[in-house]
Amino acid sequence: MVTEFTPFASFGGGLAIGLGAVLLMLGLGRILGATGILSGLLFVEDREEFGWRAALVTGMVLAPGLVFLVTGTLPEVNVPVSPAMIAIGGVIVGFGASLGSGCTSGHGVCGLSRLSARSLVAVPVFMTTAALTVFIIRHVIGA
């Protein structure tokens, strides 16, 4: 399905994403990596860490509600893939992010801006495999 090109909303949203990451560094001195924060909640290793992570995630989950209050519409979530693909993709995402110590937020936003050598390698790798995967699924297999 075709989606509308939204450079201004996307850039503005990006600014807020960056601001969130900077605020977390300012307040708690931590990188905003979604996978790390999520697994810190699922596999509790440190109770001290659990509290702020739970609060951060709560704030994130409240965001679509805030958007709804202000604009009157929920953010769009159009899922063009099957439930099986969501489940399989999710397992691979969880395994890969855990193995590679990061995802779009941790390596992509926080790592690149810190000029982390690991992130400078990880981001081009996952961007490339994501594009190849979409190409194969859509244009080779034709799903």
Partner: peptide, 22 residues
Amino acid sequence: NLIGGAALFGIGWGTAGFCPGA
């Protein structure tokens, strides 16, 4: 681990269309 993990992450992201932060 870094390269393999990142490669897998991209494959999963390209399959599901979601990443954890989103």
